[in-house]
């Protein structure tokens, strides 16, 4: 596989949030705002890249019987380390992400990439795959988080300060009054509906593009047939 193909797969063609639909539980539960989506996205990205790298180095030498057990151990150690570091450095964000941080261990995306890709590819490509898949997941988390925060609370990035401290420009924007927010958007059913609408729109666009690609060919055949007649 070429590096470009790995990038395309992670970000678009095999996007974990939109195509593989892996890790939906944290995706839907945490994407209530731009800030928390970005936080969990970055944590998952870091764990995924590191676990892919380690698995690519160690994976080949492992007996098949214990491969999955070793992956789980490595991923659990990585996630625990990330959680401890976040609790020490960014306690506010750590409190917001709550249980979904340790639950990265059970995010099937991490184990799936380790088993299906990293264990049979060179280290460089495995790292790139971790980055690409992590970015794909992060983009979906951030987009869904932004839309839900905007619809539900009328704000955008209101809890970014948990992630970035008090840097200028991290106060977020209040676009309209919170009392006019669409409550459903930040509740779990709203997450399912918005993701469902997104998937449907994506599919409609793809179908449309496929029809567009097919149509000129048909016309050409028709003209050809008419010319011959």
């Amino acid at each position: 596989m070429t590096p470009a193909a790995v990038l395309r797969a992670g970000l678009r063609d095999q996007n974990p949030g939109l195509v593989q639909l892996l890790g939906l539980c944290p995706l839907l539960a945490v994407s209530t705002s731009l800030g928390s989506g970005l936080g969990l996205g970055l944590a998952t990205l870091a764990v995924l890249t590191a676990s892919n790298g380690i698995v690519a180095i160690a994976g080949r030498a492992l007996p098949a019987e214990i491969r999955i057990a070793v992956y789980v151990l490595l991923i659990a150690a990585l996630v625990t380390s990330v959680e401890l570091l976040l609790a020490a450095r960014l306690p506010g964000l750590h409190a917001t992400l709550g249980i979904f941080l340790p639950l990265i261990v059970t995010n099937c995306l991490v184990l799936a990439r380790a088993e299906a890709f990293a264990s049979r590819q060179p280290v460089g490509l495995a790292l790139l795959d971790g980055l690409a898949m992590g970015m794909g997941f992060l983009l979906v988390l951030v987009t869904l988080g932004s839309v839900r925060e905007l619809l539900g609370r009328g704000s955008l990035g209101a809890d970014l300060h948990l992630l970035l401290g008090t840097l200028p420009g991290t106060a977020g924007w209040q676009v309209f009054g919170e009392q006019h927010g669409f409550l459903l958007a930040i509740l779990p059913p709203g997450a399912f509906m918005l993701l469902g609408l997104w998937l449907a729109a994506r599919q409609a666009l793809r179908n449309h593009a496929a029809r567009q690609a097919a149509a000129p060919a048909q016309q050409a055949t028709a003209a050809d047939a008419a010319g011959r007649a």
């Binding site: 160690a58 492992l62 007996p63 214990i66 057990a69 070793v70 151990l73 490595l74 659990a76 150690a77 625990t80 380390s81 401890l84 570091l85 609790a87 020490a88 450095r89 306690p91």
Partner: peptide
């Protein structure tokens, strides 16, 4: 079994080290 044991010890060591380094900050 020995491989699994070795990995478990390494993983434990890493977590213990991070725990020790972050304990006071937490």
């Amino acid at each position: 079994a020995l491989t699994l044991l070795a990995v478990a010890i390494v993983a434990f060591g890493v977590v213990a080290l991070v725990h020790e380094r972050t304990r006071e900050d937490i």
